[in-house]
Design a binder for these strands. Sequence first.
DNA 1: CAACAAAGGGAAAACGTTTTCCAAAGGACT
DNA 2: AGTCCTTTGGAAAACGTTTTCCCTTTGTTG
Lengths: 350, 350
Amino acid sequence: MRLVTIKEIGKLAGVSPTTVSRVLNNSRAVQPEIYEKVLAVAEQMGYTPNTAARALVKKGTNAIGVVVNNLHDPFFHDLLLGFEYGALKSDYHVVFCSVMGKSMEEKRKYVSYLSNGVVDGVILYGVYLFDEEFIRGLYSTGFPTLLIENNVEAVQAHTFSIDNQQGVYAAVEFLFQHGHRRIAYIAGKQDKAVCVERLLGYREAVRALGLEAREDYVSFIEEGSEDGWPIMDAFLSMPAQVRPTAVLCYDDAVASHAIRCALKRGVRVPRDISVMGFDNQTIAPSGYTGPAITSVAQPLYEIGYDSIVLLSEYLRGDRRERISKTYQTSIAVKETVAFYGKEGASDEQG
Amino acid sequence: MRLVTIKEIGKLAGVSPTTVSRVLNNSRAVQPEIYEKVLAVAEQMGYTPNTAARALVKKGTNAIGVVVNNLHDPFFHDLLLGFEYGALKSDYHVVFCSVMGKSMEEKRKYVSYLSNGVVDGVILYGVYLFDEEFIRGLYSTGFPTLLIENNVEAVQAHTFSIDNQQGVYAAVEFLFQHGHRRIAYIAGKQDKAVCVERLLGYREAVRALGLEAREDYVSFIEEGSEDGWPIMDAFLSMPAQVRPTAVLCYDDAVASHAIRCALKRGVRVPRDISVMGFDNQTIAPSGYTGPAITSVAQPLYEIGYDSIVLLSEYLRGDRRERISKTYQTSIAVKETVAFYGKEGASDEQG
DNA sequence: CAACAAAGGGAAAACGTTTTCCAAAGGACT
DNA sequence: AGTCCTTTGGAAAACGTTTTCCCTTTGTTG
C-alpha cells in the first residue's frame, strides 16, 4: 500500500514539507507560484492527509463516535435517522459503532480505540451498554461524552434522557379517559433503569386515578424472552368480570406479540381489548399484520439529531456549559385503543 | 482532557518507555518484578494506548470501515445484521459510516479520513455511492477495499455481487409456473446497474418463455419517487383481456405501494392479481398491513457476514488472493402470488 | 539611507507510540 | 580464564503531520 507524504510532495515541488503543509492547510501566506505548484503536485500524486499523524499533533480528528447496542433493531430506526441528519448538519464526521454481543472487555477496547485518536467525542446510547465503573473511568479522563438514556449517578457528563415515568403515567391516563378501569401492565425485566421507571409510572398512575391495584395485573417478561404472548394469554384467561379491558406494554415489540396472541384467540383488538405499546416504532418486522399500535412516542429523531449537533457545537468550543436535557413523550394515537363501556362508540378516538 | 502516556508510566515505575511498551504489548520478556510494577502503575493511572500514535508506527489499527448510503433504510436490516455478526466473529473493530445526503466531495473526505489511519480496510456497499473516478483512485493507492454491488469496470478490487438478472428471471419463471402469462414489470431508474440488470432479466425471461412482450407491461418509476402506486393504477386500468395477471416489482418497497393501490381499488391480492417484489425485506414501515410479499431474496445476511470475515482474513494475511463472489438469489414464497386460471386453487403454493 | 517591520521560507521540535540497535551483565563451555 | 551466546534494559530513530522559532529578503518610513 503506497502512500504519498508531504515530504515527497515537497521534494517534487522543490520546497520543504513545512511549506507543503502551509499550502494544504492555508495556514500561512505562500508565494502564488509556489502555492500553485504545490497544489498541482499534491493533486497529481493523489495526496490525502494522514489522519493518524494529524490527530497526533492536532489532538483532534473532527469526528464523533456513536455507540449503540445494535444497529439493526427496528427500535433504532428513528434514532439513526436523527443521527444521520445531525451528521449532515454538523461538520464533524460521524462513525457508528455496534457493541452487539460483545463482552464488557471488548466494549472497553472498542471505546478505547475510538477515544484515543479516532474521534473527538462519543455518544453512548442505552443504559445497559456499559458498567458504571467504565463510564466513571471514561468521564474521569475528561473525554467528551454524551450519555443518552444512560444515567450514572454522580457523573456530570452530558446527558439526554426521556421521561419514562411520565410517559407511562400519561398512557394509563389516556386509557382511563377512554373508560378503562381494569388496566394491566406487561413490564420489562427490572434490571434496566428504563423498565423500573416505566413500572413506577404505571403504579403511580394506578394510585392517582384510584384504579384497583391488583398484583396479577402486573406481569414481567421472562428472562431471555421478549415475548408478550404467554402473559397476554394469561390475562385473557382471567374471569370476565376481572379480566383487564386494556393492556399496556412496556414496548411495541411486546405489544405486537400480545396483539397477535389476542387475535389468535379470537379476541378482537381493540373492540374486545385495548392494547398500548411504548416507543412508537415506525418500522416493524414485516410479519406483523395486525392493527397499528397506539403507543407512547419518544422523540427519537430529535434526540439523535440534537445529540450530534449539540456535541459538535461543544467540541468546536461554541458551547461551554454541560449539555443536559430531558425529553417529554407524547401519545401516538393509532388503532389499538377503543372506548370501553360505550357499545356504539367508534373504535378509536383521540 | 488529561491523557496518560507510557512516558509517565515509565517515570512512575522507574523504567524507560521502551520497557513499558514491552510490558503492555508482551513483545519481549521483562523481569517479573518490573513487569508487575509497570502493569500496576498503568492500571492505576487508567492508561489506554493512543490509537493514532500506534497507527502511525504500526500502519494499522485493527479496524474495518463499512460505508453504506444510509443506516436507517429497512432494506439494510439483514445486511447490518450480517455485518454485526461478522464483526463479532472477527477480531477487527468495525465502524459503520453513512454517506446519506453527502456531496461527492464530502464523501471523499469521509473515506479519506477513514482510510488514512482510522481503519485498515473498507467495505463499500452500493453502486451509486461513489463515482468511478473515486473508486479507481482509491484502488490505485492499494488500500484494501471490498466493493459490494458496486462493480467498476477494470478495477480488480475485492468484489461481492448478486445475480440480479438471474433473480428476476427466476421470479418471472415462478409466476409462469403459477399459470401467469401476462406479467408486467415495474422497473427502477436505469441509472443504476442493479436496475438495468433486473430489467434485463425480465426481458430475457419474457423472450425465453415466449410471453407477449408488450411495451406497456414495462413501466419506470418516476424521477425522485419510489412510489409504485400510479403505475399499478395504470396497469389495473387496462382492458380486462390484456390486463396483467401478475406484477413484478423491482423492489419490495415499490411492491408494497402497488399492493396498497390494488387493495384500495378493491382488487384483491393475490386472488385478483399477483404481485412480487425483490429483496425480501424482513422489516417494513409499520403502516403496511397488507399480505406478506412474495419476493426474490438476496442473501444479505451472508453477504454482510462474509464480507467482514473475509476482509479481516485478508488483512490479517491469512488470505492473499483477491476475494470475489457472486451470490445467487432465491424465491421467498409468501402471500401475494396465486395460481392463475384455476379457480379452485388455493391462494398460494410453492 | 538607516532602521525597522513584515513577509515568506526552512529547520527542528513535538505528538505518543513501536522497533531497531546497542550495551551490559550473566551463564556456559572449552 | 577467556570466548561466545543469551538475556534484558535503554537510547534513539521512525511514523507523517503541525507548529514554533529563526533567518533572510523585501518593503516602508522617518
